[in-house]
């Protein structure tokens, strides 16, 4: 873009519109976070189902590993060098949503240990996952994430109705597969397509 060309009023408006739209289109998600997080939850859910089914010892072993993994990932996320070239108002808002979600997540874990049944607690997990997906899906205009949110809420209700914890774990795995893995894959493919397009 040259600087000293004569600038008409129409051209000025065109520049303003073009630049504002360029800044808006910068909000992206490569989907890997959803894929990683979703895979961990599915593995933890299926491990619990398997341990209950086979009558093995610690049925929450998968969730304990998931908890440790989450703490490690959150610590890495906090301290990793930030490489974003731009910081938007939406970025700041989503950061607060992430913090709120993390606090809710650990509060639910605490409640399962001291106050509510595992059946209810894991239903609350799906509820807050859905909340996160709806907000993030809205921010990046991802219909698959918003659909995933609806599926997670339906899954949460199904878990509250169902009283056999073993099947709760299967409901959770199914809801997360539709809510996290499928949107994650779609976002990842869109991100790759966009990046390949930029390179060509």
């Amino acid at each position: 873009m040259e600087n000293e060309q004569p600038l008409s009023n129409e051209k000025s408006l065109q520049i303003i519109q073009q630049m504002i739209s360029q800044a808006k289109s910068n909000i992206t998600d490569n989907g890997l976070g959803w894929l990683l997080w979703g895979t961990m939850i599915i593995l933890a859910s299926l491990s619990t189902w398997f341990f209950i089914y086979t009558g093995s010892g610690n049925i929450f072993l998968g969730w304990n590993v998931f908890g440790i993994f989450t703490i490690v990932m959150l610590t890495y996320d906090i301290f990793k060098p930030k490489q974003k070239k731009v910081r938007t108002y939406v970025d700041d808002l989503l950061r607060l949503v992430d913090i709120g979600f993390t606090i809710c997540l650990f509060t639910v874990i605490f409640s399962i240990n001291v106050a509510v049944s595992a059946n209810a607690g894991f239903g609350f997990f799906l509820m807050i996952f859905a909340f996160l997906m709806l907000i993030k899906g809205g921010a990046i205009k991802s219909r698959s994430l918003m659909t995933g949110a609806a599926v997670n809420w339906i899954g949460a209700i199904a878990m509250f109705i169902n009283k056999d914890f073993k099947y709760d774990m299967l409901i959770m795995a199914g809801a997360v597969l539709i809510g996290y893995i499928i949107p994650g894959l779609i976002l990842w493919m869109q991100y790759r397509k966009l990046n390949n397009g930029l390179k060509n």
Binding site: I15, I16, Q18, M19, I20, Q22, A23, K24, N26, K85, V86, R87, T88, Y89, D91, D92
Partner: peptide, 10 residues
């Protein structure tokens, strides 16, 4: 115009 739409940019 770009900076109006974001908090800060490199």
């Amino acid at each position: 115009s770009l900076l109006i739409s974001v908090r800060e940019a490199e």
